[in-house]
Design a protein around this nucleic acid. Structure first.
Lengths: 210, 210
DNA sequence: CAATTATTAAACACAGTGTATATTATTCTA
DNA sequence: TAGAATAATATACACTGTGTTTAATAATTG
């Protein structure tokens, strides 16, 4: 499609992108300088400023790509059935994180990537928002809370689980994590405490130790 | 107790602490310089380095205080009954965030405060870990997951809800947020979707719209 | 009051940033 | 494949902010 971009530009951007990723993982965001990035990429420092405003600009445009990829795959997996949608989206989230683990680590490591992290969270929340409303309409449920609240709860807990999982170097396979997350998120944590949840009268069957 | 600290030192640290908070809220962490901090505090720039290594050092020691306060209050509210403990801890978390909203905003705004944010999360997770194990032992439940997983799930979702709540300028009172969090966290989100949760055969009674 | 300790301004070397320029190298395209 | 267009480069420059040192001054302590 867009073959009009000069090869040199493609090459330069690619090299800078790779260099900043490697350096951030090695030394952290703050410790990484533009000079180091261009040295690692084997480019002149002035070249950097031909393409990016500053370090953050380069990092954001690097992460942007991964985020777009996630969005594309989520939209592509859309089906009519919202149950399958939410099921698939959760699978996809963990798969995608595993696939781009290094970049996700940069995102979750906080520095510099905060705006991206927030955008991902907001995107997931709005995605969850849609699913919730669709499901509620279908089931004829009268919402007890504005959908925004559970939507953000879902986004925060999902990202939190992914962050924790990556920090621990993914000790559990992605599918299992997705399953575990569904268990915790749909059913709640009460099942682990052997209690009925407070506030609402909801009966939970609990496993009995034998 | 520790009255041995020179008044001038107390005053200087206090002023620097206040100055950096105000400036970060006004301009963000990165944009704030040591010179600006000392000007705002009406102190010489050299004085800064008599007390702190750098900007981050000052910020961390500022936030440390708030974190210690939270921990102290959590330990103080300890009772024998773990149900009350977890109930009270959640209330306390939202109250404390509301009370120190500005500082929490700095923490959640990512920059510079990441290590504090992580420490708070880890502390909450270990707190939840203890509660889960106590509850499981008491109820004779055979854990289906290592307690670390639900513990981190709880920590992430709690902090996520607090962050969201502060970002939206606390549109809901703290007690209500705590109640909402308990609802979502203990019972899960399935109740909002009108489904039984997947993976496990667990019967949920759902509200029927009339 | 005298001793101690904190604050201060000033000057310094330094690291990193972002821009401008003239030259060289690569690529596009006709 | 030659010529036009564009990209990369080295170098130099001004600038901002950092962190340290020094010697003089001020505040606190006992």
């Amino acid at each position: 499609m867009e073959d009009k971009v000069d090869r040199r530009v493609q090459r330069t951007r690619q090299l800078l992108s790779e260099a900043i990723q490697a350096l951030i993982l090695e030394q952290g965001y703050d410790a990484t300088t533009v000079l180091e990035i261009t040295e690692r990429a084997n480019l002149g420092r002035a070249t950097f400023y031909l393409h990016y405003k500053d370090k953050e600009d380069l990092l954001l445009s690097t992460l942007e790509g991964v985020f777009d990829d996630l969005v594309r795959r989520l939209e592509a997996s859309s089906s009519k059935n919202w149950r399958l949608i939410s099921q698939g989206a959760i699978d996809l989230a963990f798969e995608h994180a595993a696939e781009h683990a290094d970049l996700y680590r940069i995102i979750f490591s906080g520095h510099g990537a905060w705006s991206i992290s927030k955008r991902i969270r907001d995107y997931i929340a709005s995605y969850a928002h849609k699913v919730i409303e669709k499901a509620q309409a279908e089931a004829g449920i009268v919402p007890r809370l504005p959908a925004e609240v559970p939507a953000n709860y879902i986004a925060a807990s999902l990202l939190g689980m992914i962050a924790w999982w990556l920090e621990r170097d993914m000790p559990i396979p992605a599918e299992e994590m997705a399953e575990t997350f569904r268990l915790l998120n749909f059913q709640g944590t009460a099942q682990f405490l052997g209690i009925e949840a407070p506030g609402e009268q909801l009966l939970l069957q609990e496993d009995q130790a034998n």
